[in-house]
Amino acid sequence: MRGHYAKGLMLAGTAAATALVLTACSGDASPTAGSEDDDPAAFYEGKTLTMVVPYNPGGGFDAYLRLLVPYLEEQLPDTTIRVENQPGGGGLIGANAVYQAEPDGLTIGLINYPGAVFAEVTGTDGVTFESTEWTQYGRLGALPPLVYTSPDTEYTSFDDILGASDTVKFGLGGVGSDAYYVAVAISNVFDFPHEIIGGYPGSNEADAALLAGEVDVSVNSGGAGVLMVEGSGAHGVVAVSNEPLEQLPDVPVIGEFGDADQQEQLAPLASVYDLERMVVGPPGVPEARADYLAEAIFAAASESGYADEMEAASYPVNALNRADTMELSSTVSESIESLSALLSD
């Protein structure tokens, strides 16, 4: 790792020199390309793999990829791996950048898949991707959103919120974040007075606002939400998931509330979160390469050292291989229509 940048420079230099020699010696480079298609391992030799984090350094998505680098380097010893943060637009900038990248298998990103689906179905400005078209490499983690309330609020359970007579204030880090859409969906399906304040710079700022009593409720995915409950005395009121959270088994899941109709409306929301942290690439990456890289990522993410480090940072790893990920996503794609209805009310 220490020689990471020096190595990168050298590799870049060598690559440039090789390219020059190739162009100088023969105008016919296609045989090389052909052999790389047959042998994806050879293709990745000496190349640079860019992993895009569509969020700022310091968050969970960043940690998932940054801590994966050393393990992925073991799987791809001759490939330079760099992590690039492309934050902004609730993750849209980074997701767009990955979608629009050259489909050569050298650009991947860890996207918030539910967030991307939400942005697409709500017609958010600047979405250039279609959720069904991504090249999917696998899942690193699935952290269902946790809805939690301020430590000294009157709302200590989800029923308290549903029966509220005063306006319930949601504080969220960023309009268009998936936490924002979860708040929108919940307040659309259930009828209680609410206000959604999405303009906090990030979820940490929203949490601080919650602790300061400025807002009543916040939503955050997985680890961050659990930490707020365990560390700061926030009340975990409901998990947007089909199964109870591993760390907080006593917190009820969303399906336990409302009538049958409301439960049916919210079901796709809980399901899309099975795919939350998905590694994707632009559409049209050659199958052989996608399989090869997906295998390397799955192997790296399955290392116990990676899981331990992530666990220490309160981000559970829940790796899923390429085939299973694609199967899950095909079932979610069928319910995109109903998700759209849920968010557009």
Binding site: G88, G89, T124, D125, G174, V175, G176, G198, G199, P201
Partner: peptide, 9 residues
Amino acid sequence: GLDPITGIA
């Protein structure tokens, strides 16, 4: 850049 409150470019 993006409006911090509405997310509009």
